[in-house]
Amino acid sequence: MSLDKNTVRTIANLARLEVRDDELEHLAGELSNIIHFVEQLAEVNTDGVAPMTSVVHMDLPRRVDAVTDGDCQDKILANAPEQQDGFFLVPKVVE
């Protein structure tokens, strides 16, 4: 599979990355190369093998339902470019 310029533009938009038009050709080539590299795995016969999402042989760690965290508004807001009354302030996002 190869990516064309339009697909790269869409992906960049979804990822909120600003990409100039003159960069698209080059990026399409690079991304296609990565995909081709990974596509080599398709040569392996995986018939009858269940898909897996992890190679770690352990169970998902769990925690008990107890309040052990939070109540640190200062830390949460410490890096906010703008804040007021304990809220983050961001450019208006509304329809």
Binding site: R63, D65, A66, V67, T68, D69, G70, D71, C72, Q73, K75, I76, L77, D85, G86, F87, F88
Partner: peptide, 21 residues
């Protein structure tokens, strides 16, 4: 507490006080 953190789920708290990192 929340699905993946130990912060409280109570409704109506002061803003950003029931938030873990």
């Amino acid at each position: 507490s929340k699905l993946f953190s130990g912060a409280s789920t109570l409704f109506g708290g002061e803003p950003n006080t029931q938030v873990s990192l």
